[in-house]
Design a protein around this nucleic acid. Structure first.
Lengths: 338, 338
DNA sequence: AATTAGCACTCACGACAAATGAGTGCTAAA
DNA sequence: TTTAGCACTCATTTGTCGTGAGTGCTAATT
């Protein structure tokens, strides 16, 4: 279908996008001729441009202006033209290496690293916690007849507020409760627990309260983790001239400051897609004139989160994708060396 | 000094500020006459305005425009004119009550509540953790030769990653370590601990590693807490026409997204000041055309944090201060009822 | 001495017109 | 199929002018 573009048209389209990515100005036929295709005349390029426009790849702000790429053009560019060469990779790698001492730092503030290198606003989202497995639940005796709840998962330990214990025979109570808690929760996935409120009823009446508190703790934890979104470098957006328009800024802020919207845009139904590139409102109603590039990262086969950038449509896709890929490789290395 | 304004001048200044707060337009002498002072002529008001301008309370965008209040005017207004009546308080109270079921909700997302009621961007900052006292430090036996560190403070429990234990005789090791940890840390303030790295040297060599890990945990905790800033309702800023100017928006974002700057602006050397109102760049170089109103909250005599709003200079100081005060009262009630 | 009416003056703002020039589409020739 | 040439379009810039809001000043009034 759309893949049938002649080489020259591809070349013209690429020239147009490259130029627009760096200049943010409509490009004229003669500009393309001078800088990218000196062997043909501007008139030829003009007729090619007319065809490309008919095909929906280009638009013209007005009749006496040059052309700018449409969302479809970026889409085509990312899908069919863009290639990340070893050179690009090498370059990114060396930037990553000189800027950050260890991969640990990158994991910790991944969003900041990505934002700094790409020069776009970046976002880090923690993945669904459905598959976290609880290894054990323990009460630890504290003071004043309270106990601390520890929920040990395959992904770290959750702890939260103390819970109150019944007055008498605390030591014994905790022991029995720990046994019950272990039998009820250990080995279960978070998602199972959250959806099976009836666990409580099956238990002994004396421990009902403790169970409820533990359950709430787990539910809260799940909810909080899933809402977690880190945004870095919001002010980088002002580097791009399209964000001299207050309406674009409003739009940007309203997306970036709204966790739910961000999730909606980034979350991919298809679990197997590693890199996601959403361009313009064809991809999502809210993304007018914007683009989101994101990657899913895994650790030991388990999805741990998504990292990406959000910026103007005329984004440096090559660089962004190279950075995200390179970080992916670093994760792999980290996994293998351990 | 500046306190010597005649009643009529006060009245005019108040009229000007009130009008500008709601309209965001320069006010002319005749407008003041019509709406606020029908008993004198506009010419009289004009000459008063000229004097007020000379005194630095007013500025004129250009010669054929009305006047707008300067930072100094707002300052004077807040310090010498503004009074919060019982009526205002009642009104805020009823809004708070109808909007939020319990004080708990307000504590939990204080920033959101304040932003919703005032209609300004709000911020919540956790206070210095210097005075948090450690009650105990405990290792809890986990699996695979690891232990979880629990640091119990008068302000909740900190837990963090597991730490590795020496291979043999785990149970005994933990017991001894717990004793040592208790003796080293219990009763000390966070600030003391962070500044006394030499604790380690005094301890037995076998436990050096555990001590270091615990110490790092405490230091990290302190650092993280202090950096914590919650911002709510950033997009509310677009409700105010001064933020149709992209430069003001840039300025706003750069302040609001920069924890350090915010701390710098809000942090008050004088520990006794409860309400702080900073207006314009007289107060802080970065606050060009903006104002920050914030309050310090205490619980059991201990400062727990600051809550406030940031917005245009022509802020509804009355409402904002009333809301912050009312929330303060709720804290007091909460304390007394417990 | 304070207030006021009256009037000349300033200046932002919007409307309109004219000039400019960048870039196009089309046509006819190579 | 490509290209040179040219007429055409239209955003942008610049300049002029009229309008009106609001002021500052002065002279008269209380």
């Amino acid at each position: 279908m759309d893949k049938e573009l002649s080489e020259r048209r591809k070349k013209i389209l690429t020239a147009l996008i490259d130029s627009y990515i760096s200049e943010a100005e409509p490009i004229s036929s003669s500009a393309i001729q001078e800088k990218y295709l000196p062997d043909v005349s501007s008139a030829t390029i003009r007729s090619e441009l007319a065809t490309l426009e008919e095909m929906g790849f280009l638009t013209q702000p007005h009749v006496s202006a040059g052309r700018i790429p449409s969302s479809k053009a970026y889409r085509y560019y990312v899908d069919n033209i863009l290639e990340i060469s070893d050179d690009d990779t090498e370059q990114i790698k060396s930037i990553l290496e000189t800027k950050y001492d260890s991969i640990k730092e990158i994991v910790k503030d991944g969003a900041k690293v990505v934002s700094d290198i790409t020069n776009y606003t970046s976002m880090l989202m923690i993945s669904s916690t459905d598959n976290i497995v609880i290894n054990d639940v323990k009460l630890v005796d504290m003071y004043d007849g309270t106990a601390l709840v520890l929920v040990v998962t395959n992904n770290g330990t959750i702890k939260d507020k103390d819970i109150k214990l019944p007055e008498n025979n605390v030591k014994n109570y905790i022991e029995v409760a720990n046994g019950l808690l272990y039998r009820s929760f250990a080995g279960k996935k978070l998602v199972e627990i959250v959806h099976s409120h009836n666990i409580i009823d099956a238990q002994l009446h004396d421990f009902k309260e403790v169970f409820e508190q533990v359950l709430n703790l787990i539910i809260d934890y799940k909810k909080n983790r899933e809402e977690q979104v880190v945004i870095e470098g919001k002010d980088k957006i002002f580097n791009y001239p399209e964000y001299n328009d207050i309406n674009n800024v409003k739009n940007f802020i309203s997306i970036v400051d709204n966790k739910d919207k961000l999730h909606e845009i980034v979350d991919e139904k298809d679990g197997s897609i590693e890199f996601s590139v959403k361009i313009g409102k064809d991809a999502d109603e809210k993304l007018e004139d914007m683009a989101v590039v994101s990657a899913k990262y895994k650790m030991n086969g388990e999805e741990i989160g998504q990292l990406g950038v959000i910026g103007p449509q005329r984004m440096n896709y090559k660089k962004v994708l190279a950075v995200l890929k390179e970080i992916g490789k670093m994760f792999e290395d980290l996994e293998n060396n351990k």
